[in-house]
Design a protein around this nucleic acid. Structure first.
Lengths: 116, 116
DNA sequence: CTGGGTGTACAGTGATTAGTACACATGCAG
DNA sequence: CTGCATGTGTACTAATCACTGTACACCCAG
């Protein structure tokens, strides 16, 4: 989507929690320099692991934050690889579904899981 | 899955079509040296683009071949990023579904698409 | 016995990814 | 006006990725 909003987003959230850049960098295990550049979208977002730590520290959904960074949690590709044809074609269809229809599908799956 | 079967698989298929390594390398746009190493699983599989050309040249499903290579077609992550929460949670559920149940879900989606 | 085709060994490379260290400037508290 | 915290500019770097070129040994046809 918008490829330049990751940094701005996490900066805003960090400022809401009143944490200094250095403290936050330290908490998520990166250098302050790097975080500074990332927050101003001067550097691309970090790797998956760091993004997940950032999400945790900021109380955000990791998948959402990864998406903002133009990434996807690596367990999802791993799942797709188990059944490439079915899941690939599902996803390509799902891309065309309305949000409501997608919600129906999700409910359908939930039901199946409950029934075992 | 088996992280060392990609090369062996494409070598077998290539030999079935009776194409020489050099000709095949040329056809898919890589060097013979490289193909040789890849086919003996001495080098990791090539990038997505080349794998798709290989799939085409061998008449295989690209998603299947990509999966063998431990990869996923990049349009799928792109789709997931449109609705990270829903699709991530769907996939994590789908990972636990039996093949039959997954087939049911796929049919359900197909039906929705036909109905618009 | 040479010339073309087969696959392979060895050695490297250019681009990208995911960062780091060090030094600096500004502001504000005591 | 010192001293400490804040964020930032400059300059690298180590590792990985996705390959390539050159040269070689082998086989077989003519």
């Amino acid at each position: 989507m918008n490829p330049k909003k990751f940094g701005a987003t996490i900066r805003a959230l960090r400022e809401q929690q009143q944490i200094s850049l250095r403290k936050f960098a330290d908490k998520v295990g990166i250098s302050p320099t790097y975080l500074s550049k990332v927050e101003r979208d001067e550097f691309p977002p970090p790797g998956e692991k760091k993004i997940k730590e950032i999400a945790e520290a900021l109380g955000q959904d990791p998948d959402e934050l990864l998406a903002l960074a133009g990434k996807v949690s690596s367990d999802l590709p791993a799942i797709i690889q188990q059944r490439p044809r079915e899941l690939a074609s599902f996803l390509r269809s799902a891309g065309e579904l309305s949000p409501e229809d997608l919600a129906k599908v999700t409910k359908y799956v939930e039901k199946m899981k409950r029934q075992g």
